[in-house]
């Protein structure tokens, strides 16, 4: 197996009594676009700060390119990062900010990937205006420009579309797509499932500092998703589906059945139904992805509260 680009192992970060991150582990492999998903306060920014050497872990390790991250460690030069909002020296122009940031380690701005950067920033003449006069969206775009200067292999983006309008969000999504096609790996955090759904190949879901779930977007959504099925013989379908190991619960709804899956894919259901000779009229996600996300977060709590409507999958009862 190739070396993971990001490898977080048993990471803890405590602030006094509060644990912002608790025993978090995940990897991001070469070429993945991994979404770090969780509600506000989940510990996403803290995780990314530790990964970028800004904060020290209380316990555990964060590795970039196989090297344990220390403040200012050399591997960071291969990473383009935006942690929380893009920020600059306000009394300098956008251009001078780029130049001074790049040249702080020596060299000359002409060695950087300035064309790509300026293309992304798309600031026109405003690039020569003081950053103080920029809107948040302009700063965010200039932030993207800055992190692209060094032709990074890994992008670490903390809620990158915050403060952007829909057009800018689309530009950023296209940019991420282009960079990954060119071989970059991306780790981005978000509290919007719809955003990561459109951008990411993989997800790491966290809540209250803890890992909730991780895997490909399809796996995660499939593993908790509910599916709505309509067939010609509902009772027989119920029997057939109850026998499937991936089915956790099912109950009647409208003219069809809502099936809760704990793993496996929707296609497993359709194969089983058709093998049993049933005519499948409709099969569709019963939940929006947003609901699946909430369900992931509330997972443990849900197991403790028995629900009224769903019928437990039980062979005898299903007969």
């Amino acid at each position: 197996m190739p070396m993971p680009i990001v490898n977080v192992t048993g990471l803890w970060k405590n602030f006094g009594e509060v644990s912002a991150v608790e025993d978090l582990s995940f990897v991001v492999e070469q070429g993945q676009v991994c979404g770090l998903l969780g509600p506000n306060g989940a510990g996403k920014s803290t995780t990314l700060r530790v990964l970028m050497g800004l904060e020290r872990p209380s316990r555990g390790t964060a590795e970039l390119f196989g090297v344990s991250v220390q403040p200012g460690c050399g591997e960071l030069i291969r990473v383009g990062a935006m942690v929380e909002q893009a920020a600059f020296v306000p009394h300098l122009s956008g251009m001078l900010n780029l130049r001074l940031w790049w040249e702080a380690l020596g060299g000359h701005l002409r060695d950087a990937d300035l064309d790509t950067a300026l293309g992304i920033a798309d600031l026109g003449d405003a690039i020569n205006r003081k950053v103080r006069t920029y809107s948040q969206g302009m700063k965010q775009r200039l932030g993207f420009a800055r992190l692209l200067l060094a032709r990074p292999e890994l992008l670490v983006l903390d809620e990158p579309t915050n403060g952007l309008d829909p057009g800018e969000i689309r530009d950023i999504r296209e940019l991420i797509g282009r960079l990954t096609r060119e071989g970059a790996t991306v780790l981005l955090s978000s509290h919007h499932l719809s955003e990561v759904e459109q951008t990411c190949s993989h997800l790491v879901v966290m809540n209250h500092g803890k890992l909730v779930s991780s895997g490909t977007v399809a796996q995660l959504v499939g593993s908790t998703g509910s599916v709505y099925v309509e067939v010609d013989d509902r009772e027989r379908a119920r029997t057939v589906l109850s026998a499937l190991p991936s089915v956790r619960n099912l109950h009647l709804q409208g003219d069809g059945l809502v099936v809760d899956l704990h793993d496996g894919r929707r296609s497993d259901l359709s194969v089983a139904l058709m093998t049993a000779g049933l005519r499948l009229e409709t099969i569709a996600p019963a939940q929006r992805l947003e609901d699946a996300f909430l369900e992931l977060l509330e997972g443990p709590a849900r197991d403790l509260t028995p629900s009224e409507t769903p019928v437990a999958v039980d062979a005898t009862e299903a007969q």
Partner: peptide, 10 residues
Amino acid sequence: GNLRYLLMRP
């Protein structure tokens, strides 16, 4: 907020 970006340069 610029300090963290300098330190991530790194």
